[in-house]
Design a protein around this nucleic acid. Sequence first.
DNA 1: ATGTCCCAAGGTGTATACAACAACGCCATA
DNA 2: TATGGCGTTGTTGTATACACCTTGGGACAT
Lengths: 219, 219
Amino acid sequence: MTINPTPERLPADAIFQILRDRICLLDYPPGTVLRETELAKAFGVSRTPIRAVLQRLAHGGLIESRDGVGTIVTDLTFDEIRDIYRLRLKIAELIGQMSPRPLTEADGDAAENLRQRAEALLETFDITEYWQINHDLHLLISGVIGNAALGQIWDHLYFQAARMWYQHARSEPKNVAASLVAELAEVNRAIAENDAVALGYSQRNYIAYGLARLEAKQG
Amino acid sequence: MTINPTPERLPADAIFQILRDRICLLDYPPGTVLRETELAKAFGVSRTPIRAVLQRLAHGGLIESRDGVGTIVTDLTFDEIRDIYRLRLKIAELIGQMSPRPLTEADGDAAENLRQRAEALLETFDITEYWQINHDLHLLISGVIGNAALGQIWDHLYFQAARMWYQHARSEPKNVAASLVAELAEVNRAIAENDAVALGYSQRNYIAYGLARLEAKQG
DNA sequence: ATGTCCCAAGGTGTATACAACAACGCCATA
DNA sequence: TATGGCGTTGTTGTATACACCTTGGGACAT
């Protein structure tokens, strides 16, 4: 794997994000065993903060610790993935309804910036950049959600679904890049119109399109 | 407080449920500081498993740990409570839609049993029994939810909202007991009709009624 | 050859000592 | 009297040694 130029002592939050991203980007594919001692040495800390991070990841459904065996990256069945996607469809519809904060010009600028980055992917696709753009878009949307509890759920489901989607993205980079550009065009329009409800529904739609692709491949 | 006849060594899950229930039942009111050492001694374990439990509770939004200060039971503003309730309204509507499992006669028996227990509360109200009935009803509904991710969210939001509701229940025991009986009648009917959608909407309705009571009191 | 038992190895779970941090009171000083 | 600095105290965060659990392989009996 050789993803370890980090012998320095990192805070717990940073370690959490790194491990979460590695799982979502399939650097740690489902079934991978993560040994606490190994991670502790890699991040230059003891097992204690590592265990705290792993507990957070376990709560997020990304890993599972089994006594005497190891800490294993979860392997969701397609039925479970579909459940998560169907739920995300419904949650997305709520974004515009649950007291969103007003959209600003800064949101528009950020979205336009993302669109340009996405267009660059049409020529040369890079999975990490694709991840970053999606991640930034997700943060943008999260920032619009006024209802804190809804925001947490939105986050939760995003990271649970991410893995399956990036697996698909690797196999069809051209299509997913084009889809992302189109999605960001819709996002831009909704923001320009200051229409948070439209923003939510555009998310709903592109989640639905994604689910359709996954089901087509699975079937 | 004197809620400690448990010097025996309990598994982590049991400790989690006990602390969660104490917070929800306001044995630990908002603002209470929970000292890890104290809890460890009370449950006959070391700080380590206590910390694991507290991290779970923190993730559930019930407590907050601050370095050098203590672990404090969260004090939600009414705006946050309202956000949670409004979200629960929407989530309840999904229960019947997201592939629920078929309702059985055992479900009907369980609901009828709960209704009888609730009716007993009309004569002599007991907050702990009221909690237990609500809890068992919640478990019954959770069991109907086929979508695992939805079930988790349903759980999460229930325990976040519970505190505010039990505070209200203490101040108006007669009204809430009558409302619970009526709710269970609706639940019974929905189960008898084998109509999971109706079950979800009945939950939605009684959450809405509850929110209306809270807003009336707050205003 | 095969099935069973047992032990060794390596993992997570637990206990405990120590470090780091925040709040509070006290005292010196302007 | 007001105020700023500092040490004390109590808390959470971290490191580490140890206990317990699970798994796999090898020896032994059949």
